[in-house]
């Protein structure tokens, strides 16, 4: 069965506290963290972008899987912050990790679920025997307009998954998607920052699509909440996934382990995929994981995953999600503004 043969993540070293952002804009710093469920967010260094984050995550995944990069037949990078508007990120990744030139490659964009869309595409190619191994990456250096609510959560990070048939450390039994045209969040060509529908991003967007995606997956796999040990939902903030869990009756402790958003913020295309990696870092063989990624615009990709025995041999080979979360250096708003190109005079 198609599964994950290796995975790796990367989170930049810098953090800014959401309370520091709040104070700059005259908000109550003590309320923002608990209110949003995001206490600090990751900030990429001035020389980091989706290509560099993707390469670091992919190198970790390859090291964990102990595969030959020449066996990778497809490289797909999902992001809403590709460094080039035209020119693929994937080719940079493929060259940097040492892939063969005889493979296919493309960039994906579907707001925060571009990475899981990449996973589904890789699964299709593997399952149909068109390729041996597919590399699917979700990675972002998300931007929030200064002073906008998004600024508290828009973060940077990524996860890379190697999809294959041979010795998977977790199998993916099923995946489904739910897609409508719902403009809750967008960025027009040439604009520096995205726009969003504020409260419209909630009920008709996130909750409807994640909820419907979950329902479809339960139905298709003939399972219920009780059949799963872990749940991972896309994390635009710390509150939405918890509210989602409540709606479909997920016990809090089954969701808790994936909530990386509190310490690193919303890594967009990396969000649910890093959440899943956090669970894979700790889950015992036999555990079942229920994942629903969400992308504005809008759609959801849901996955039913079972952890295999092979996972235990892979542990310790590469840095875990927690390793990256714990490696941090705080920056002030001025440094954050310098690094994130919010100082326009610097070019």
């Amino acid at each position: 069965m198609v599964g994950i043969v290796g995975y790796g993540v990367y989170v930049p070293r810098y953090r800014i506290k959401t309370s520091d952002i709040a104070e700059l804009w005259g908000e109550d710093g003590t309320k923002i963290g608990p209110g949003l469920g995001v206490f600090e967010k990751s900030v990429p260094g001035p020389d980091e972008d989706v290509a560099t984050i993707s390469v670091e995550a992919a190198r970790n995944a390859i090291k964990m899987a102990k595969i030959n990069p020449l066996d990778i037949g497809a490289v797909y990078v999902g992001s809403e912050s590709h460094p080039y508007a035209v020119k693929p990120t994937g080719t940079i990744v493929a060259e940097a990790v040492g892939c063969s030139y005889n493979m296919t490659c493309a960039d994906f964009e579907f707001a925060c679920k571009a990475g899981t869309a990449a996973m589904q595409s890789a699964m299709g190619l593997v399952a149909s025997n068109m390729i041996k191994i597919g590399l699917a990456i979700g990675s972002d250096t998300a931007q929030g307009r200064p002073g906008d609510a998004l600024e508290y959560s828009a973060a940077a990070g990524g996860a890379a998954y190697l999809i294959g048939m041979k010795n998977p450390l977790a199998t993916i039994e099923e995946t489904v998607s739910f897609t409508t045209d719902t403009p809750d969040f967008w960025r027009r060509e040439g604009e520096d920052f995205p726009s969003h529908g504020a409260r419209f991003t909630g009920e008709p967007a996130y909750f409807r699509h994640v909820g419907e995606g979950a329902k479809l997956l339960f139905k298709k796999t003939k399972t219920t909440v009780d059949d799963y040990d872990y749940f991972v939902f896309h994390m635009p903030n710390g509150k939405f996934p918890i509210a989602m869990g409540k709606q479909i009756g997920v016990p809090k402790e089954k969701l808790e382990d994936s909530l990386v958003v509190r310490q690193i913020g919303n890594t967009y295309s990396g969000s649910a995929m890093i959440g899943l990696a956090r669970v894979l870092d700790i889950a015992k063989p036999g555990s079942k994981i229920f994942v629903v990624a969400y992308g504005s615009g809008a759609g959801s990709d849901a996955f039913s995953i079972t952890v295999e025995d092979a996972i235990e041999k892979t542990r310790g080979a590469v840095p875990t999600v927690d390793d990256y979360i714990e490696r941090k250096t705080y920056v002030d708003y001025a440094t954050y503004a310098k690094y994130r190109r919010k100082i326009k005079a610097l070019g």
């Binding site: 260094g45 020389d47 980091e48 290509a51 560099t52 390469v55 670091e56 080039y84 940097a96």
Partner: peptide, 17 residues
């Protein structure tokens, strides 16, 4: 070694990694 942006050839130019 790690993978980073080395240089940008101006805002519209290529990025050397």
């Amino acid at each position: 070694s790690c993978f980073r942006k080395i240089k940008e050839f101006g805002p519209g130019g290529i990025i050397a990694y």
